[in-house]
Amino acid sequence: MIVGDLGRGEFDKRLAGPGLRVRFGPFNIRIGSPLDAFAGVAHQLYAPYPLVEENALIDFHVRIASPRGLRRWVRRQACFSLDGQSPFAPYTIEHAFPAVEWGINWCIATRAHHLLMLHSAVVERDGLAMLFPASPGDGKSTLCTALVHSGWRLLSDEFGLIRPEDGLLLPLPRLIPLKNESIEVIRRFRPEALIGPAFYNTRKGTVAHVRPPVDSVQRAAETARPRWFVFPRWIAHSPLDLQPMSKSQAFLMVASNAFNYEVLDETAYRLVAQMVAQSDCYSLCYSDLDEALAALDELSRSSRDE
């Protein structure tokens, strides 16, 4: 059963009552909220995600609700909480949805230490994964969104989750948050992409969430093997430049991009070394999505033919 099987009434009832139990990749999450500002967007954008059966363990219990006290009425706000604790300052109520999305990412990044977590977008084709470790502003999400609407499967826009037991990547096909100009870029590039409402003046500027293609959500249990590391950088008016990168440099960039390299110590070292050793590594400067996608398609084809 998926979220979309629930009518809006039942959906709201669960959110306001026992919580909506939904599965995002390897994580079971219970979301509670009495806020219409959250429920309306969530009902649309979470539609393809599976519901978690009643007896399954929940990894994170999160909630978005108005804080108690006068502020509840004077200036309506929304507080994100995990297990009853509020780690962040309140958001304006209009930003309740992006607050939950960021909050869930925060839960994963600060707690899922049974996995190595790279700050990276990951897409897959034929079982082989291409990773895009990057810093904010490097065009990772824009490129990732374009790829997953052009024949690649989304594993994650934000987390490269590596299972220590076998070094395989676990999918976490959550919504892709586009920021500022990227929203219009993707609307023009792939008009068929399902993009939620724009949230203005958030802490990260204007944000709108892309719902991944349904196929990516349905195949969230299919792991992938790391095959390419591409370090992207969007530069306005830049010609396409895809250059091989030394493995030692790639190692350092991957390790420094990990959320929990220090936490996992030797395990992280071994996993990153193994991934980099078995992958081809490149830097990519781009400004034109069509050019970038063509280059990455060619890269994946030529590597497979080797």
């Binding site: 030692s248 190692f251 030797e266 070394a273």
Partner: peptide, 22 residues
Amino acid sequence: LIWQAWDEVYIIYQASSAETHV
């Protein structure tokens, strides 16, 4: 130490300090 050599660069993990050196 755990060694990983690429070209003329050595990425080395030191268990006693949990540090990675280049």
